[in-house]
Amino acid sequence: MKAIFNERQWRHDPKHFMANGVVLPSPEQPERIARLKSGAEAAGCAFAAPSDHGTGPLAAVHTPEYLVFLETIHERWRRIAGASDEVIPNIHPDRRDVSYPRSAVGQAGYHQADTACPIAEGTWEAAYWSAQSALTGADLVLGGAKAVYALSRPPGHHAFADLAGGFCFLNNAAIAAEHLRGQGLRPAILDVDVHHGNGTQGIFYARSDVLTVSIHADPVRFYPFFWGHAQERGEGAGLGCNLNLPLPRGTTDDVYLDTLGTALGRIRAFGADVIVVALGLDAHENDPFEGLALTTPGFGRIGAAIAATGLPLVIVQEGGYLSDDLSANLTSFLGGVEGG
């Protein structure tokens, strides 16, 4: 299987993460890259660098206002006397239709949903190339590849059209899906991260040309809390084109595989001719977020079930945090895809 990654994705090195009011080291560490690359190579992947598609495909999903913010905010933030090294918001509007501030502090609050997406000197460059990796994976599938793995880091599925959050800045899976749609395909996004892909849902919620499906830990007591509930089905033209399948905390392999069957049935009913897999490995039993309890062999079964659809796959990396099992989980999933 071909795999895509750019070395500039190492440049995002967040230091801070607030949980339960306590400032902790961010779990979205560059070390994830080394472990994911190792796991992919163990599955037989050969890595290549992505092509530069420019900002056009990013602007097909994200607002130009937001892209300017991501590219310029760190430099502007550092002009504030006594400011921190990382852009972290301390005020948020209560809705999206408010006036747009000129202040760097105000814009940070407008464009960053939480304290889990600090922006540092290398963040924009890393996020840009993370998206280009997903786009290049989509191009390879358009060229006839059956499955391609994009090591997209930082991840993307919590990023809305104009809002960062949950370690995510550019929505790599959404960008890849929109690129595929623009080339005449009918994409479905299947998100198997332990957290609901709220940004992906938000981007396509009123559209019927991209199906969004997410299997995740029930958000009633789990991030992202406000999105990911079963009654969220889309709106307007998109009604019925969003499927959320929340699972109880601690769900194990067999129940998960049954739920995956429901997800794949909806993808078949949609008539998708390509699947963008938003691949989170954080549903594992030993992941630090402790949402679900999948095993390493379970990821292989998931990969095989998705591959058995016979549809081409653009596999875009999302979560999966530092544990002794991270590499093996990716090897298992990609091996399942190859075997399926």
Rank of each mutant, 00 (worst) to 15 (best):
V22I: 09
L24Y: 03
E41R: 14
F47K: 09
S51R: 13
T55G: 09
G56D: 15
L58R: 01
A59T: 14
D85A: 10
E86N: 10
V87S: 02
H92V: 02
V98F: 08
Y100N: 11
R102T: 04
R102V: 02
A104Y: 01
A104K: 02
V105H: 04
G109P: 09
H111T: 10
A113R: 01
I119M: 05
E125V: 14
A127V: 13
W129Q: 13
A131P: 11
L135H: 09
L140D: 10
A147I: 05
A147K: 03
A150V: 14
A150L: 13
H157N: 09
H158T: 03
A164T: 11
G166F: 00
A176Y: 08
E178K: 13
L185G: 12
L185A: 12
P187Y: 03
P187N: 05
L190V: 07
D191K: 04
D193L: 04
D193Y: 01
N198K: 00
D209V: 13
L211N: 08
V213S: 06
I215R: 02
R221N: 14
R221Y: 10
G228L: 01
A230Y: 01
R233Y: 04
G234V: 07
R249F: 00
D253P: 07
Y256E: 12
D258H: 11
L260C: 11
G261S: 14
G261P: 13
D273T: 12
V277D: 08
A278N: 15
D287N: 04
P288F: 00
F289K: 01
E290M: 07
G291F: 00
L292V: 03
A293E: 05
L294Y: 01
G303K: 09
A304W: 01
I306L: 12
A308W: 04
T309G: 10
Q317A: 05
E318H: 03
G320Y: 08
L326M: 09
L330Q: 11
L330H: 06
F333N: 03
E338G: 04
G339P: 02
G340L: 09
